[in-house]
């Protein structure tokens, strides 16, 4: 993973690919605790900082002229090192929200089709979009890292996650239901939502059901799924031997998981692979 760093200081999703904010931030979070990586991490932080836009947010890469969801990754990665940059990013997050429906007829219509309370919103992938679980949970984790914990947007974001939970446990990417069918939970959304709720000390029946679903091994055993599961497991002190064994089996000869820097960084964050 460290050898895959690009000359500009960032990482792509694949080795040699263009640098993106998300894998770069994930590598910083995975490696910054180890003093041996100081030079690499410093270069990566510098790369991230150069991409901060005038509005305080980040696009997905240098070619992106619009701030969006990867702002949360940048804030999280910089929060323990450059709080000024992180705060400006956090302010962008606080000023950004998914679409909110207020018209009573529309609220009722959305409730019928998607089974959600559309008056509550989280964070979108891009401004102008509806809110989704991944960017919302990520924004909450970033705001927590930036020491912002009581803001009304944070409280609404937490309510958003709870409202969108699937009754049987876990989260899909957004709503729990679509037109005629219950959407199935996904490991990634469920693990990230649980991490965000736990960061704000929220534990209730919804989180317990989701955690029980995540503990079942009824998912396709890919590196991506195992890393997200292990990330949550590590946070709650769950046994990680099964995840470690599975990931070691899936680890490629070059040390990567799926040849994907982001997934590999998550694996290092969870298990120090």
């Amino acid at each position: 993973m460290l050898r895959a760093q690009n000359a500009d200081g960032g990482w792509g999703y694949k080795r040699g690919g263009m640098s993106y904010v998300e894998p770069t931030a994930a590598v910083i979070l995975a490696c910054s605790q180890d003093a041996q990586n100081a030079a690499v991490v410093q270069k990566a932080r510098a790369f991230i900082k150069t991409l901060q836009r005038a509005d305080g947010g980040w696009g997905i890469a240098s070619m992106d002229a619009e701030s969006g969801w990867m702002t949360a990754w940048a804030v999280w990665a910089l929060a323990d090192n450059d709080m000024a940059a992180a705060q400006r990013g956090a302010e962008w997050l606080l000023a950004t929200a998914g679409l909110r429906v207020t018209d009573a007829t529309q609220v009722a219509g959305v409730k019928k089709v998607l089974r959600i309370d559309a008056t509550i919103t989280g964070w979108p992938w891009q401004p102008g979009d509806a809110a989704w679980i991944f960017p919302s949970a990520l924004a909450l984790l970033a705001l927590h890292a930036a020491q912002i914990r009581q803001h009304p947007r944070v409280q609404e974001g937490l309510q958003y996650l709870l409202d969108r939970a699937i009754p049987e446990g876990g989260w899909n990417i957004g709503n729990p239901f679509m037109v005629t069918g219950n959407l199935p939970p996904t490991v990634e959304s469920t693990a990230l939502a649980l991490l965000a709720l736990r960061a704000f000390d929220i534990e209730n029946e919804i989180t317990q059901r989701a955690a029980r679903w995540l503990a079942q091994e009824n998912f396709t055993p890919t590196a991506h799924e195992w890393t997200w599961r292990a990330l949550y497991g590590q946070k709650v002190g769950a046994p990680l031997e099964r995840a470690r064994g599975a990931l070691q089996t899936l680890q490629r000869a070059d040390g990567s998981l799926d040849g994907n820097v982001f997934t590999t960084a998550l694996g290092v964050m969870a298990l120090d692979l």
Partner: peptide, 13 residues
């Protein structure tokens, strides 16, 4: 999706 999100709803908009 990395730009337009999952499920690329930004484009639906």
């Amino acid at each position: 999706g990395i730009k337009y999100g999952f499920p690329k709803n930004t484009l639906h908009m």
